[in-house]
């Protein structure tokens, strides 16, 4: 690039990043430990805070595996079995990316809430979804639904089916082939997908705030705890909680930063991953 523009562009780019991202995030760390580490620690170990941490952890431990199993399953279906309407399944999986989390939370209430479609049935069986853990789990799982699919599907398409066919000729059934051949091949992209899913579940706010009722000490996840802290004069707690989540986010970035190959695939428009013709090895020889 022409030398003349080098520094002006750099100033604009880095300046923008600094003012928008770096300094704000840094200031949260500052505020959290402004009054000393001990104060911060205390703020984050109150019963409500601990409950929030615990609840968030439980939600992650349930929602992430569910989304992972779903994600791998759908990726396999889309990559290995072409059927009329695969494009539809592909698009449907991306729906959570196109809808505001608040709307997702609302939609869950409309189905599983007291006046919702399943409301009567759930009440009759004594199952509480909204304002309770199941609702939070469902909301979190819903918003993070697409990530595993979007990471694993392109890799499955790229790998192609030859290794799996070879395994079949050697006597392996579908499960064995999946376990010994397919799964090891998608290890990396699966790890990325799980990482992204976890980050999303940890960070979800809009859907959860609607679905949970945000009852402190009962249905408050960490993100809700933070918001509550700011609005109700517990800033230290909020900042301390924010630091925890920010550190986790940085961890996510470190894990994801490892593979430059991924970069090229990530930021396309949601419904970009149609199963392509390249998945079946061409029969005609050249």
């Amino acid at each position: 690039m022409t030398a003349r523009w080098r520094w002006p562009l750099r100033v604009v780019a880095f300046g923008y990043l600094a003012l928008l991202v770096v300094i704000p995030v840094g200031s949260v760390f500052y505020r959290a430990f402004e009054h000393g580490f001990a104060t911060a620690w205390d703020a984050v170990t109150t019963p409500d805070a601990l409950h929030a941490l615990f609840l968030t952890l439980i939600v992650v431990l349930i929602a992430v595996p569910l989304d992972t199993v779903f994600g791998v399953g759908v990726a396999l279906i889309l990559a290995r079995h072409r059927f009329p309407g695969s494009w539809l399944l592909d698009a449907l999986v991306d729906i959570p990316l196109a809808i505001s989390p608040v709307v997702i939370g609302l939609s869950l209430i409309l189905v599983y809430g007291k006046s919702g479609w399943f409301g009567n049935w759930l009440a009759a069986h004594g199952i509480q979804v909204i304002f309770s853990l199941p609702g939070i789990v469902m909301a979190s799982a819903a918003v993070a639904l697409p990530y595993v699919v979007r990471e694993v599907l392109p890799v499955l398409l790229e790998i192609g089916t030859e290794q799996e066919q070879a395994a079949a000729t050697l006597g392996a059934g579908p499960f064995t082939t999946f376990r010994r051949i397919t799964l090891p091949s998608i290890r990396r992209s699966l790890a990325y997908g799980v990482t992204l899913t976890t980050a999303r579940v940890l960070g979800e706010f809009g859907a959860v705030v609607i679905v949970s009722g945000a009852i402190a000490g009962r249905t408050q996840t960490l993100t809700l705890f933070i918001q509550d802290g700011i609005e109700n004069l517990n800033p230290t707690g909020a900042y301390a909680g924010a630091v925890i989540l920010a550190l986790l986010a940085l961890l996510v970035l470190i894990v994801l930063g490892g593979d430059p190959e991924r970069r090229k695939r990530r930021w396309r428009s949601p419904s970009d991953q149609f199963p392509s013709d390249s998945e079946t090895p061409s029969l005609s020889t050249t």
């Binding site: 990043l17 991202v21 918001q227």
Partner: peptide
């Protein structure tokens, strides 16, 4: 690169807080 991706990995409330 990490700075650019940070807003994506960071929870929205935390973003608002910063």
């Amino acid at each position: 690169g990490a700075v650019i991706d940070l807003p994506f990995a960071l929870p929205t409330v935390v973003a608002g807080l910063t």
